[in-house]
C-alpha cells in the first residue's frame, strides 16, 4: 500500500507527541515481539534516543514491512486499553483515520479491523491478510451448467455478453457482503469471505445471486435456454496468496465436490459446517439431503407451485 508523506508524518508525530521512547518500544513490540530500537537505528544502547528519532525509525520499519494498517490498529488498541494498565492518549488518531479513509479503508469498531470501502481499493486479502499465511475462510464456488454446450450453440458475442452479465451479478453480491472474488474462469469462479459472520454472509450472498439470476434469465438473458448455474458454500482453512494461484487444498477440493456432485442446476448446496452456523430462520430454507458415507449436505432452490 502506498503511504503518503502526510500520513507518514502524522504517524511519526502521533508517536513522538503521545509516548515516551519506552512506551513507543512497548507499542512496537505489540506488533513485533523482539523489536530492538537500538539495533534498528544503529545507535549504541548506552546513548539516549530522542523521541522523534525513535518514532521516525519505528514508522519507517512499519512502512517497509507494509504493516501500516496493523500498526494503526495497534495504536487504536493502545488508545482504548492503554499499556500495562496505563492509559495512553494517542494523539492525532482522528487525522490518521481520515487519511486512511482517503485510501479507501475504514475502521470497523464491531470487527476491530480496517475494512476496504472503495471499489478501487478492493484487494484479495482485504488489505489485512499476510502472504502465505493460513486463515479460516468461507468459500463460494459458482459454475455455469453445460458451459461447453452453450458456447457451441450460441454466437461468441452473445456468450461473451451473457458471461459478462453473469460475472457482474456475482461480483456485485460478493463485494456487497465484503467477500472477494479470488478466481474467475469465465464460466465460473471462487469467492472468499473472511470477515465477521463469514458463513452467514457467504450463504446470503449465494442466495441473492441465485434469485437475481432467476430475474436475469426471466427478463434479460438473450440465450433461449437461459443461464443455469450451480453454487456451493463450504468453510475451512486455506493459505492466502495475493496473486492469482491455482490453490489446491482439502477445503477447496471438498467445495468443488459439493458443487459438482451434489448440486442441482440453479441450486445452492452447503456443507454441514456452514449450515450449522446459520440460525433458526435461515436454516428453514435448506433441505437436508443425504450424500455418501452417512454424510449430509443442505440444499436450497427456488421452485414454484404448479
Amino acid at each position: 500500500m502506498k503511504i503518503s508523506r502526510a500520513l507518514t508524518n502524522l504517524l511519526i508525530k502521533s508517536l513522538a507527541e503521545s509516548m515516551t521512547v519506552q512506551l513507543m518500544i512497548k507499542t512496537a513490540r505489540l506488533l513485533y515481539r523482539d523489536y530492538d530500537i537500538y539495533k534498528q537505528t544503529g545507535i549504541p544502547s548506552n546513548i539516549p534516543i530522542q523521541r522523534r528519532d525513535a518514532a521516525n525509525q519505528i514508522i519507517r520499519d512499519v512502512i517497509e514491512k507494509d504493516h501500516v494498517i496493523q500498526f494503526v490498529t495497534t495504536l487504536i488498541d493502545v488508545y482504548k486499553k492503554g499499556i500495562m494498565g496505563r492509559p495512553i492518549n494517542v494523539r492525532f488518531l482522528p487525522q490518521i483515520l481520515a487519511e486512511l479513509k482517503e485510501l479507501g479503508l475504514v475502521y470497523s469498531e464491531k470487527e476491530g479491523i480496517f475494512i476496504e470501502t472503495s471499489q478501487d481499493q478492493v484487494t484479495r486479502g482485504w488489505s489485512i491478510l499476510e502472504e502465505a499465511k493460513i486463515y479460516d475462510f468461507t468459500f463460494i464456488r459458482i459454475d455455469i451448467v453445460d458451459n461447453t454446450k452453450l458456447v457451441r450453440k450460441n454466437k461468441k458475442n452473445v456468450i461473451e455478453s451473457v458471461y459478462n452479465d453473469f460475472k457482474r451479478i456475482f461480483k456485485f453480491y460478493v463485494e456487497k457482503r465484503n467477500g472477494r472474488i479470488w478466481t474467475w474462469e469465465g464460466d465460473g469462479g471462487l469467492a472468499a469471505f473472511y470477515l465477521h459472520d463469514k458463513n452467514l454472509e457467504a450463504v446470503l450472498c449465494a442466495m441473492e445471486c441465485l434469485v437475481e439470476l432467476f430475474f436475469y434469465n426471466l427478463m434479460q438473458c438473450p440465450l433461449k435456454e437461459g443461464l443455469d448455474v450451480r453454487m456451493a458454500v463450504h468453510a475451512g482453512p486455506c493459505q492466502f496468496f495475493n496473486h492469482s494461484q491455482d490453490i489446491k487444498n482439502e477445503t477447496l477440493r471438498r467445495l468443488e465436490q459439493i458443487e459438482s456432485k451434489f448440486t442441482e442446476p440453479n441450486g445452492l448446496t452447503l456443507s454441514p459446517g456452514v449450515y450449522s452456523d446459520l440460525g433458526g430462520k435461515l436454516e428453514k430454507f435448506f433441505v437436508q439431503v443425504p450424500v455418501e458415507k452417512g454424510n449430509f449436505v443442505y440444499q436450497y432452490k427456488l421452485c414454484w407451485e404448479e
Binding site: E264, K284, F285, F286, V287, Q299, Y300, K301, L302, C303, W304, E305, E306
Partner: peptide, 10 residues
C-alpha cells in the same frame, strides 16, 4: 401469483 416454494425440491 403462483407461490414460490423455497427450500423444497421437485
Amino acid at each position: 401469483m403462483r407461490r414460490p416454494i423455497i427450500g423444497a425440491f421437485r
